[in-house]
Amino acid sequence: MKNDVDRKGINTRLAHGGNNPRDYFGFVNPPVVHGSTVLFPDAATMASRNQKYTYGTRGTPTSDALCNAIDDLEGSAGTILVPSGLAAVTIPLLAFLSAGDHVLIVDSIYNPTRRFADSMLKRLGVEVEYYAPRVGAGIAKLMKPNTKVVFTEAPGSNTFEMQDIPAIAEAAHSGGAIVMMDNTWATPLYFKPLDHGVDISIHAATKYPAGHSDVLLGTVSANADCWEQLWDTYLTMGVCSAPDDVYQVLRGLRTMGVRLERHQQSALELARWLETRDEVAQVLHPALESHPDHALWKRDFSGSSGIFSIVLKSGGEREAHAFLDALKIFGLGYSWGGYESLAVHVNLSDRTVSKVDYPGPVLRLQIGLEDVADIKADIEAGLDALRA
């Protein structure tokens, strides 16, 4: 059954991957196993640990079902599940960096990743350096003898710059470094990092895999060369995920394909409409032909998701707040990837080597599953508030 499913289309694989109902008396969903202690049949088995499950932190049927489904999507040797998207960033960095090492991190990174690097990594004696997102193969000039990790994210957080991932991976590997990628925006449905030279693929499963703004989870998937070291650090840190959270993400995964199609379609329609608005200076969405990195996106990605930013032609915080406060359908909140539309005024003060002098506020829009006409009317109300 499994090999047959592996040859099917993506939505079929999402619907059936991860577990075999026949293993659970025909129930289509795997059991939610709440457990820490696992009993052994005898002392010899306990001494050798020669059974599939030995303790709750080392995996359960529930966590295995989700890990297997993610491995199928990523093409990875193994996946770990951690309690948040940020934990999915921190665990692999701790796994592959030591005191005296040098790490290169893209400047358009998710801000909590930067906070971890600038605090914890530096405190542990790791040299942290940021690079411009469009550096491409030029990253070879930034490599040092002690560079152990190159950390990427594409498109960039909030400003949506694309990265030439294959070129960066080739340069990093030539210098003896491994490559990590935060691929939350595209999911493995629209970009498979390991197929493009990345060693460690990171996702905030809180977003599109869960899909309902009600659970926190992160996944980290590794190729064969990096899997053992990642797994060992995961066990050492003890950052396993709760079974109910794991189950909810597996349930969300079943509909992720059809939800992403709707997010993509609605976001592109609204992004193209916003390009025509006089109040908008620029729409930051790599799937738009006007985006400076559109060719790179088109070359490597097979789709786009539901989050992008707009740059207003003028103004500052007052104008940004006027726009946001006029919204009724959009919620004002962090995160994204759920069924509801969200908006936030972007703060880019953390950038160091990729600063852009935008003419007005940058507003990030998560386009949810509501009707496009209603979302558009809500955005129009926000734009009207600017003129008022």
Score class of each variant (00 low, 15 high):
213 S>N: 14
247 Y>K: 07
57 T>D: 11
386 L>N: 02
348 L>P: 02
212 H>T: 09
323 F>W: 09
93 L>G: 01
205 A>T: 13
336 W>N: 09
331 G>H: 08
236 T>R: 13
324 L>E: 11
95 A>P: 07
352 T>E: 15
73 L>E: 00
154 A>S: 15
21 P>L: 11
155 P>G: 13
255 T>E: 12
147 T>G: 00
148 K>F: 05
15 A>P: 02
157 S>Q: 09
11 N>W: 07
242 A>F: 07
89 V>T: 06
343 A>Q: 05
387 R>A: 14
98 S>Q: 14
261 E>R: 04
345 H>A: 12
205 A>Y: 12
216 L>P: 02
173 H>A: 06
200 I>A: 07
84 S>D: 07
157 S>N: 15
191 F>W: 07
304 S>W: 06
16 H>V: 09
13 R>P: 00
308 F>G: 05
310 I>D: 07
141 K>G: 03
142 L>S: 09
213 S>H: 05
203 H>G: 00
155 P>C: 12
197 G>Q: 10
37 T>R: 14
195 D>C: 04
128 V>A: 07
381 A>V: 02
177 A>W: 01
11 N>C: 09
43 A>V: 09
286 P>L: 04
360 G>S: 14
323 F>R: 14
109 I>D: 03
196 H>P: 01
111 N>L: 13
213 S>E: 15
232 D>L: 05
68 N>G: 02
18 G>D: 03
327 L>Q: 12
150 V>W: 02
268 L>T: 06
336 W>I: 02
61 P>N: 15
343 A>S: 10
3 N>W: 12
324 L>S: 08
330 F>H: 11
145 P>W: 11
189 L>W: 00
305 S>R: 03
136 G>T: 08
377 A>E: 11
268 L>A: 00
352 T>F: 01
310 I>H: 01
1 M>Q: 10
112 P>D: 02
53 Y>F: 08
84 S>K: 09
253 L>A: 06
143 M>P: 00
36 S>N: 14
142 L>D: 05
290 S>N: 04
385 A>C: 04
153 E>G: 04
77 A>M: 05
129 E>Y: 00
373 A>C: 02
218 G>F: 09
263 H>I: 01
172 A>P: 01
323 F>E: 09
277 R>S: 07
61 P>W: 11
145 P>L: 14
343 A>L: 04
260 L>F: 01
149 V>P: 00
189 L>T: 03
107 D>Y: 06
5 V>N: 12
189 L>P: 01
247 Y>F: 12
168 I>F: 03
361 P>G: 13
322 A>H: 10
26 G>E: 10
39 L>M: 14
